[in-house]
Amino acid sequence: MRFTLVGLILLLATPAWGVDLPPDASVSGGKTMAAKVIVNSGRLAWTPYKRDLGRWLTLSYQDRRATPEPTPFEMKAPTNGDAARGKALAWQWCITCHTLPGDDWPGTVGGPMAKYKQFKHPDALVFQQIFDARIFNPNTVMPAYGTFGLLAEQDIRDLVAYLQNLE
């Protein structure tokens, strides 16, 4: 009974991913902290960062977590995507690396997306490329938006609808 109680207290006191965060990560109370340099001071100030990043792997040697494995996802037809919403998502997530129609500052790390419709890729293939492109190329630099929990299934369906209609 006593051990159950101690276990319960420990469980409640530990943040969801707190157990995994290495001691050399800049966190406080499970929250990601950013260092701020204060002029003429020997101390750093720490402020909560706008995003909590503790869910994902760090460079720490004490981080014993593994990279999520490449994951296939079979998208069921019909795609049912909202191309307008997909465009908004593309301008948020894709534009840094990919050239999108109407962009004056094109990214060139990824392939150009203008006239994407011409390639006639199946929707399920485009979905998989966004969900986890490592299935097609283990060395790709494209983030695995689905596997890493960055985009929901409907978000990716919307992106597929947008891309497949770029003429």
Binding site: P22, A25, W56
Partner: peptide, 17 residues
């Protein structure tokens, strides 16, 4: 760099850095 690529940063002076 870590923050820009959505990675939890480490403390300055840590061994990996």
């Amino acid at each position: 760099c870590n923050l820009d690529t959505r990675t939890q940063p480490l403390l300055p002076g840590s061994q990996p850095y």
